[in-house]
Design a protein around this nucleic acid. Sequence first.
DNA 1: CTTGACCTTCCAATTATAGGAAGGTGCAGG
DNA 2: CCTGCACCTTCCTATAATTGGAAGGTCAAG
Lengths: 139, 139
Amino acid sequence: MQIGTAANASGVSAKMIRHYEAIGLIANGTRRGNGYRDYDEHDVHELRFIRSARDLGFSLAEIRALLDLWRDRSRNSRDVHKLAARHLFEIDRRIIELQSIAATLRDLIEACHADARPECPILIGLSGPCPGHDYDRGA
Amino acid sequence: MQIGTAANASGVSAKMIRHYEAIGLIANGTRRGNGYRDYDEHDVHELRFIRSARDLGFSLAEIRALLDLWRDRSRNSRDVHKLAARHLFEIDRRIIELQSIAATLRDLIEACHADARPECPILIGLSGPCPGHDYDRGA
DNA sequence: CTTGACCTTCCAATTATAGGAAGGTGCAGG
DNA sequence: CCTGCACCTTCCTATAATTGGAAGGTCAAG
């Protein structure tokens, strides 16, 4: 099948498939006589794997490692577990970070009258000292 | 003061201060005879504002708007509120997205034995159909 | 034979930040 | 005085992942 068909079947855009090939994430597949790339079900399966991993927020570097494990029939599930666990850890960290930001924002937003007057606790909060950062000179 | 001093006092790196100037986020400040940029407390205040906004995850485009409002003494707090509320909405959306990802990952990870055997529910989960995506041909 | 829908490659933009090269400036110590 | 060091300047490059476009080749249908 052509790249467009593989793209639709995998959920990975043709643009990205070419890119993944260029950076060596997937193999330089076979070409037809006209130079068009040719894909089969196996390729689509691999692309779906990539797509799923992307959807779970894995970076391309991590996906590269995951693909290596996926292709390796003598892999240890331990290695996969480690990779995924590390990723989950980062995600949980990011969630906590965002929740802290959201809480701060919510406080500021709730304190704001949201009317025609210029006074605004949000702007005051932003212009104040930034907690958690060390300045050379006191705030 | 010189750019390095302003950088330390604001928590914005000298590199970034120059960049913010280049993209017009902050004004092209005065220069000393030797060509060095010169900053005062007001500039540092503005940089801290930027820094705080960045810490809350505002994009530079949003910060540009926030700065305009901050500088505008005849602003409406409504406009600030709207901007911040939209940002908070996006953050909440992102949190939910990450929580969904984390839940999926946690399920996969917990199902994995993490030993020397190759069987791995994580890889199986990744190679399966990607929920929420329409394929041309059934999974 | 033209039109339209594919495909090809290459180049550029996005976002925010960091790193380095190459060179000028200014102060302090030997 | 001269040297070294710490600072400043500009300009170019890179990162991560994706998207967009231009310029051109291929193919099937009308």
